[in-house]
Design a protein around this nucleic acid. Structure first.
Length: 235
DNA sequence: GCGACAG
DNA sequence: ATCTTGTCGC
């Protein structure tokens, strides 16, 4: 498994070429091993800063009680480009991951898995990098067509790219927009959806990524990185 | 050519 | 991604 620390020096064209390579190594299949632990990961940063904060929160599954957490502060100059999110966020997340004493049986990331034009969303990319079992849980759609799921809790609708199913639009909470679930690596689509359903605790966002989001913002504020304005540009 | 476009 | 209070609706 290689080191993602050099991603910030990739050009967008190189990043896309790398995704085309990764694509050939994706494994989507039923996970046999029982899931006893699950973790959520998230990234936070200021709009005008190249400092990234990463957090992972690990839970006992399916009880969903926190076992441990890991955080990291890192830097990147790779910009946010739709479709290339992993090249911006994976390096920081990789540090937090390596700081975990024990790895979770499943990792949920905030973003797509294979529901991506080249099947290489951040969850898939990170799964291939670490050989972890990963699931993508995104708050908005990147790729794929789907019918709007019914307005009831856990209503779901498959997402397709051409004739290939790449994920599921899941109504995790009534009267809320769906979330977009897709396997990252080493797990199937139905199993990914099942696991995410078991992680819903009354909020739209599943507990693993929801708690990771709360923690990563907490450490960012504690670090003093909470400026709301871009300083010294016009006055 | 035009619209869409994870975080 | 982040900033940010109240407010409308189920």
């Amino acid at each position: 498994m290689e080191d993602p620390s050099g991603y910030e020096f990739f050009t967008p064209a190189e990043a896309i070429a790398y995704q085309e390579e990764l694509r050939n190594r994706i494994t989507i299949k039923e996970l046999i091993k029982p899931i006893k632990t699950i973790a959520g990961a998230d990234i936070s940063y200021n709009k005008y800063s190249e400092i990234l904060y990463a957090a992972i929160v690990m839970f006992k599954y399916p009880e969903m009680q926190v076992i441990t957490t890991s955080t990291a502060i890192s830097h990147t100059s790779f910009p946010y480009i739709s479709g290339l999110l992993a090249f911006r966020e994976v390096p920081a997340l990789f540090i937090a991951w390596n700081n975990l004493y024990i790895k979770p049986d499943v990792l949920v990331l905030d973003g797509q898995g294979i529901a991506h034009e080249r099947r290489t969303g951040i969850a898939t990319h990170f799964g291939l990098l670490t050989n972890a079992v990963t699931i993508g849980s995104a708050k908005s759609r990147l790729a794929g067509k789907y019918q709007e799921p019914a307005n009831s809790t856990f209503a779901e609708s498959p997402m397709y790219d051409k004739d290939e199913q790449i994920g599921v639009a899941l109504r995790s909470k009534k009267n809320c927009n769906p979330i977009y679930i897709s396997p990252g690596h080493n797990i199937s689509i139905p199993q990914s959806v099942d696991v995410i359903k078991n992680c819903i605790r009354g909020y739209r966002i599943p507990e693993p990524t929801r708690q990771a989001h709360l923690l990563v913002n907490k450490i960012r504020i504690e670090h003093g990185d909470n400026n709301t304005t871009q300083l010294g540009l016009f006055d």
